[in-house]
Design a protein around this nucleic acid. Structure first.
Lengths: 189, 189
DNA sequence: GTCTATAATTCGATAGAC
DNA sequence: GTCTATCGAATTATAGAC
């Protein structure tokens, strides 16, 4: 039986690198986030980054681990599922820059795009299957919801399209919530 | 009075470079689209690219000129505006890879993001103002429509999220059309 | 564990011959 | 107009001293 390993001192260094990498990937995308800049942010020698993570690919994989933490909606009235989910997604985006890092990297880096697809399949689609009766419909409806939430995040946080970035949070959630509600409950068009 | 200049032979070369650049920017984003690769695609010496366009920034600007060609909807019934616009956007995306180039580049390159904002302001928002009575509402509603269409294109063409990429074109247009229709005509939530 | 030095590429951009 | 040669900078990654 294995006991929990005592935290080594190096774990703090490793975590500092990981956090700095996440910030850089979120701000600059994959290519422009250089190991040198990440090391400088973490106040660590660039060679240490290579020692801890092997190469840039593996560093990104470690920095882009992400859990959407889909909420428990068992107590949410059916009619309020849309706004509940819209608020949850927006909250996750604002509280964890990993999603920004993933999106910025996924657009030019195939491995990051694959990670996005994994997150969709294992977290969004799985969640949708628990609240939608028809499992075949669940995947398509989860995908439609993803198009709207990713598009909103893209316009608000990445492109910073003025009307989207300036829209009050509650108003945006109300609009997006209505769309998600429709994707969840409307009949197939 | 100026007469139309006779096409010089060099114009063909210039256009070949521009088209190759558009393809590379669309496929790889700004950073990974190298001048060397673009020149190789166009079967032209890399030095010629610099001679014709000065630098990479200006080459991108030339390759990313784009017209959404918003349709004339004066004869479209109000209830079908949503699907009409959804079909138009999707068609433009499929017929002109400039939009893909813009999106891929905009996520990591500030100048490309600025171009996206310009296109929204000068083409999408302007169009919305012609079909929506309240001008203050028009900008916000145009922005919401953009979040949905950009998100759909992102998932279908860039991330290639399987359920979105595999969804039949007509079914996708029907779903998106309903959302756009709602953003155009629904009361503020 | 930490850091210096540097290898090996690759890129944008320039100079200049023809 | 076209192309060769190359500069100078930046990058990932490695080797090895301490």
């Amino acid at each position: 039986m294995m006991s929990t390993p005592r935290p080594r001192r190096s774990d703090a260094t490793r975590e500092a690198i990981r956090l700095a990498a996440r910030e850089r990937f979120a701000a600059n995308g994959y290519e422009r986030a250089t190991i040198r800049a990440i090391a400088a942010d973490a106040d660590i020698d660039p060679a240490m980054v290579m020692r801890y993570f092997g190469n840039k690919e593996k560093l990104f994989a470690a920095a882009a681990e992400f859990d959407l933490r889909m909420p428990d909606v068992s107590a949410v009235p059916t009619g309020r599922l849309g706004v509940t989910l819209a608020a949850h997604f927006l909250g996750r985006w604002e509280s964890d820059e990993t999603l920004n890092a993933l999106l910025r990297a996924a657009v030019t880096h195939p491995a990051a795009a694959e990670r996005m697809r994994e997150i969709f399949a294992s977290q969004v689609a799985t969640f949708a299957a628990t609240i939608l009766p028809d499992p075949t419909q669940a995947t398509a409806r989860a995908a439609l919801i993803s198009t709207q939430m990713l598009g909103a995040a893209l316009c608000r946080f990445v492109l910073e399209l003025p009307p989207v970035a300036a829209m009050p949070r509650e108003e945006l959630i109300a609009w997006l919530g209505g769309t998600i509600q429709r994707y969840l409950t409307a009949a197939r068009p």
